[in-house]
């Protein structure tokens, strides 16, 4: 017997050698991970990337809240206002995003709101402001906002502009006098795989 060598039962050695093949089951389990992520080392896909989205007047937006610059007081039936809102992806991931509107109360229900992708404000300073392009997400006067509307993808650092127009329709009830509502558009972003 050579020095350092140990004699072992052949039976035990062979069973152990066959058992070691079990490793292949483990490798089989993890191998598809690499296939799934499309890279050799999936570790690179385990990231701590986060998502941030901002709303503002232009592409320099950094804040998560923005006040749409429309007239706030003295709304009356037939009055409309429009303003631009820029939504910017300020995070490090590409995101897909959507918009969801809310306008509580009787005045909120009565108001008509349209959100168009792009476009410009027409007649912005007067009380008859509208948007130049067709609405993508519409709340009709007297009804609630529809469910969240998908707006596609926004790459990291990218932004998109929206024209928001609001109208208190003719014929809205006299009971609305003096009432207030907060028209809120929430843009929600989620990571794109």
């Amino acid at each position: 017997m050579s020095r350092g060598a140990v004699e072992q039962s052949g039976w035990s050695v062979r069973v152990k050698a066959l058992l070691s093949l079990g490793l292949l089951a483990g490798f089989g389990a993890v191998s598809t991970l690499a296939a799934w992520t499309g890279t050799a080392t999936a570790t690179s896909d385990i990231t701590a990337a986060t998502v941030f989205i901002a709303a503002g007047a232009d592409a320099n937006a950094t804040s998560a809240s923005y006040t749409i610059p429309i007239a706030t007081a003295n709304w009356y039936p037939g009055m409309s206002q429009a303003a631009m809102v820029t939504v910017k992806n300020t995070g490090t991931s590409n995101v897909s995003y959507n918009v969801r509107g809310a306008a509580p109360g009787a005045l909120g229900t009565a108001m008509a709101v349209e959100v168009s992708k792009g476009g410009t404000v027409v007649n912005g300073s007067a009380t008859g402001g509208t948007c130049s392009v067709a609405s993508a997400y519409t709340k009709a006067g007297g009804s609630n906002f529809p469910p969240p509307h998908p707006l596609g993808n926004l790459n990291a650092g990218g932004w998109a502009t929206f024209c928001v127009s609001t109208l208190l329709p003719l014929g809205s009830g006299s009971i609305l006098q003096g009432q207030s509502t907060a028209i809120t558009l929430t843009f929600t972003a989620s990571t794109v795989p």
Partner: peptide, 25 residues
């Protein structure tokens, strides 16, 4: 028994809002 990678996708949101008040005639 293949292992799958799962996203626990991040979400974030931004709000654009305006408070409007109807006039009193």
């Amino acid at each position: 028994n293949r292992i799958e990678a799962t996203q626990a996708a991040w979400t974030a949101s931004a709000v654009a809002s305006a408070t409007v008040t109807a006039l009193n005639t």
